[in-house]
Structures are given as C-alpha cells and as structure tokens.
Design a protein around this nucleic acid. Structure first.
Length: 489
RNA sequence: GGUACCUUGGCCGAGUGGCUAGGCACCGGUCUGCAAAACCGGCUACGGCGGUUCGACUCCGCCAGGUACCUCCA
C-alpha cells in the first residue's frame, strides 16, 4: 500500500508530501501551554490535532520524537500590569512560590489531557529548566551580530537580520509595514526598533522569577525557549513544528529568526498550524474571557453549558472538523457529536458479534483504503469519520440480516474499524458508569427484566410497561430482542 | 490602517468545474403488543451581483457580512 502522507505547510502555504529529513526518524516540536491557568477548550485543539498526527505517523512506521514544552517563565503580560511575568503575577496574587503555580497547573493540564486520551509527548521540557540553553542561544545570536545589549536586556536586531536573511517568511509580514504599525510597549526606548524583540529581559526589583546571566539578573525573552529546547532535543534541523495559528506571528516568526541567526539554518521543514475554536463566531481565548475550561466541560459547570460533555465527546467533536478550519462551539454541535460517537462505539460491539457468511457482498478493503486516503490528505479526520459511519451502516445492515460478509472481509472490517476509531482517532470507550461493573446490580436488573419477560408472555403489558418505565427513570434503557432483551445504562 | 482567511441545507461540518460527503435534528415507512434500537426513504444547500466556460457551489472580478494576526493567547 502506498501511503503518501500529505501535509499543509504554513511556510509554503501549500500541501506537500511529508518526507522526513532522516526517515524513519521524525522530530516534531509543538508549542505547549503556559501553565498559569486551567486548560480550556482551545488548548484541547492543538493537543488533539498533534496527537492525531503523532499517532498516525507512528502507525505509518515512523519513529517519532515528539517534544512539547511547558512554558513556565517569560511571556510578559502587557495589560494593566506592565511587564509582569504571568507566572509571577499569579504567584504574588496567591501568595505562593511561582514554581508552586507551575506544578499545580502542570498537573491539572496533564490530568485533562489524559482524560482526552492525548498521548504524552516523548519529551516535555520546561522553559525554567533550560535557562542555560536560552542564555547560550542569546550569546550565539550576539556573537553572530544579530542582537545587542541595552541596559541589561538583550534584543534581537530585526532590521539587521532582515538585510541578510528575510524576516517574515512565515507570516508574510514585510518589515516596511511593521515600521508604521507599532505601539508603545515596555522597553521601547531600549530598543533600536520597535519590532525588535527581547532575547533576555532584565528583571525589575519586584520581579520574582529571575536568573543570573552575563547581562543582568533577569529572565529569557518571549520566544527563546522554543528555539533553545527545539535545538537541544531535535537538532539544527528537524521535521515538524506545530502550534495554534495565533502563534504564527510573532512567536513562530521570531523563532525562525532566532534559529537562523544562531545556526544559519532554516531549522524547521514543515510548519503546521491548527485553527481556533470559536464561540458565537469569535475566537475562544484567554484574553477575551470567553473560554470554557475543560474541567467545566466535563462537569457541566458553566452557564453556557446545557449539560456535561465527556472527554471523548470533546475529542470526537474536535476531530469532526478539519484541524485547519475554525470550529464553532455550541451545545447542539456537542450533543450531535456525543450521539454520533455513541453510535460508532456501539457499532464496535455489534461488529464483534457479527457472524460471517460463506459469501458476502461487502468489500471491507475499500473502507480501509478510504480511511487511509483521508488521513493521508492532510489528516482529514472528518472524512475518516464519515467513512466510519458508512462502515457502521454496513455493520448494522449485516446484523439486521440485510447484507452478508465473508470471513476475510469481516476480519478486515474489524481490523480497520478498530484501527481508525481507537488507535488513530484515539477515541475510547468511556467507563462512565461503575454501576455496570457491579455484578449484583447486573443480576438484579436481569432478574427484574426476566419478570418482565414473563409478564409479556402472559400479555400483561401493564406490568411489563410499568417495569420498563421505572427502569427508564433510573437511566436504564431496555431493548427487546427476538428472544430476550438487552439493557444498558 | 496593513496582512491573511472565511461565508455550504434547521444545526455542525467535508468536498469537487459536470457524477451533488457524513453526523445531529425533523418527517414518513418496516420491525415491535406498544416502545427503544436497527433498517429503508424524505428534507437535497452552497452570501449577493457580474464574468470565463458547453456547463460553476467549485475559476476570475466587484460588493456585502464575518474572523484571525499586527500586543499575551492554543
């Protein structure tokens, strides 16, 4: 089978065949969370998008080193609190150590990602653990003449860089446009140009997160960590760098500049960006205050939520849209995802029970190929899901006796259905009700339903309907079969 | 203001120069004592106006509306 994986490269703005620099080894770096608040729906998108890519590349036989950072320093805030570090601010407000904040939210981030069945990256480095590397990066850039020190801080000289290399190759920005387009920011006077960005920032006396450096006691600049850690774990040149589209400029643009200025190499072959999740057509984001945390989603504890949505519902909801499209949040859409996924998962059980015929009219290989084709076309998970629904129809038709399938095709069908639904899309059966694992309860419900069967045999429908209604109220759904019954909670 | 992108049926969402995904909802039918589930069928859309074309939802232009980035954000 030829599996040509095609991915959309933000750098070329085209779909390109994915050819690793050093196949079968693949290096992938994805921008992770800044751990100063709970993860929200927006964080789930890149996590799931790149989890999908990670899983699929591994399935194709690539040996992937997946690095996703934890940002726990830097990232100045720029609203009311001029130049205060996000982590530091939170720590001051809560009267705790910055690293306490980091630990707390990192643990919570992991917990939510685990629930979403997002596989842990191969390496999850922290910015605070790589201050030395970031200082080295800064030194190198100064050495190469693309940065200057000013009042204890170090800034990247964008104009000079732009003369030798081109600044703006990722975002399409032109430096001339940036001249007329800037605002007054902290440290403006220290910079030669307003669009120069910090590699190292001198800490003000009240700034609690600080490290020594050749230039000052301070902290690394906004974009340094990804360059430093990407370089450390993946080398001068690696295959994939991912993140949200909102990071494209300035973050990723600055990373490219740093990489090129320090190593002379372009570093990243494929830039991949996921689109945003919107709510009422507007980006869901921290600064807009219109975000819903994953915890709220899972518990249903937010005013805009009509009910709680399980982690797998969220995962499926996200996968039902292509990663480069915006995805609009709504209760209706979430509930549609919930029901659709439940049907697919039930299909897995039905599939297990199917009996093959000597002859069949089902071609399962086609399904399998269709799914591969969809994945290969820039990870088109919605199409994969559409094919799975087609397969579901087939499965149900076979069970209903309207279609037949031979042993070989049944095996292929089982293999492909499970492969794509579980291994690649990464959904899983939810172990929602511990009650269904309770043997006593099972026996009791079976006993009551046997009584109901008797009532039905005696045509005592008043009793049988009463039993069904009461069990329904308790959340138990009954399905009468030809000879017997099934139930589920 | 600059740059990029988007506009698909009740809702969510794929996609293609002609063959009109999929899900959810809704409506009919089959099955069932009645249901549920399942199956069959229906609802068959591509912002507006022009242009290119034998033919455009798909290409081009204009207009309208919306979004993102330009400052931290996934």
């Amino acid at each position: 089978m030829d599996n040509k994986l095609i991915v959309y490269n933000s750098l070329s703005r085209k779909k390109e065949e994915f050819k690793p620099i050093n196949s079968p080894l693949v290096g992938m770096y994805v921008c992770g969370p800044t751990v100063y608040g709970d993860a929200h729906l927006g964080h789930a998108r890149p996590a799931i998008t790149f989890d999908l890519l990670f899983r699929y590349m591994k399935h194709l036989g690539f040996k992937v080193r997946y690095v996703r950072n934890i940002t726990d320093v830097g990232h100045l805030e720029n609203d009311a609190d001029e130049g205060e570090d996000k982590i530091g601010k939170k720590a001051r407000l809560e009267q705790i150590e910055p690293m306490e904040v980091v630990e707390y939210y990192t643990a919570r981030y992991h917990r939510e990602m685990d629930k979403l069945n997002v596989q842990r990256p191969s390496i999850e480095p922290r910015a605070s653990g790589h201050i030395i590397e970031q200082i080295e990066l800064t030194k190198k850039i100064i050495e190469n003449g693309f940065a200057y020190e000013s009042n204890g801080s170090v800034y990247f000289d964008v104009e000079k860089y732009n003369k030798q290399h081109k600044y703006g190759i990722l975002s399409g920005r032109v430096l001339d446009d940036l001249y007329s387009n800037t605002r007054d920011l902290d440290g403006q006077s220290e910079k030669r140009n307003s669009f120069d960005f910090a590699l190292w920032k001198k800490a003000s006396p009240e700034h609690i997160m600080r490290w020594p450096s050749p230039w000052s006691d301070g902290f690394p600049g906004w974009h340094a960590e990804c360059s430093a850690m990407g370089h450390k774990y993946l080398g001068d040149e690696f295959d994939i760098h991912g993140g949200g589209m909102d990071l494209l400029f300035p973050h990723h643009e600055c990373e490219i500049a740093q990489n090129t200025a320090s190593t002379g190499k372009n570093t990243v072959k494929y830039w991949i960006h996921n689109n945003m999740i919107t709510i009422n057509g507007q980006k869901m984001g921290k600064s807009l205050g219109n975000f819903i945390t994953l915890e709220d989603l899972f518990n249903g504890t937010n005013e805009v939520l009509e009910k709680a949505y399980s982690p797998m519902t969220i995962r499926f909801f996200i996968l039902q849209a292509h990663y480069r499209s915006t995805l609009d949040f709504s209760n209706e859409a979430l509930q549609a995802a919930e029901k659709g996924l439940a049907r697919l998962l039930k299909g897995v059980e039905t599939l297990e029970k199917l009996k093959p015929s000597n002859q069949g009219n089902i071609d399962a290989k086609e399904l399998k190929n269709n799914c591969y084709q969809a994945m290969n076309d820039d990870l088109n998970s919605p199409i994969v899901i559409a094919h799975l629904f087609d397969a579901l129809k087939t499965i149900n038709s076979i069970e209903a006796g309207k279609e037949t399938i031979d042993t070989e095709n049944l095996n292929v069908l089982k293999e492909a259905f499970n492969l794509f639904l579980f291994d690649i899309l990464g959904t899983q059966k939810e172990t929602q009700n511990t009650a269904t694992n309770n043997e006593v309860l099972k026996d009791v419900v079976d006993m009551v339903l046997n009584l109901r069967m008797q009532a039905k045999t005696n045509k005592d429908y008043a009793t049988s309907d009463f039993i069904r209604d009461e069990l329904t109220k308790l959340g138990i759904t009954i399905k009468d079969k030809k000879d017997g019954f099934e139930w589920e909670m």
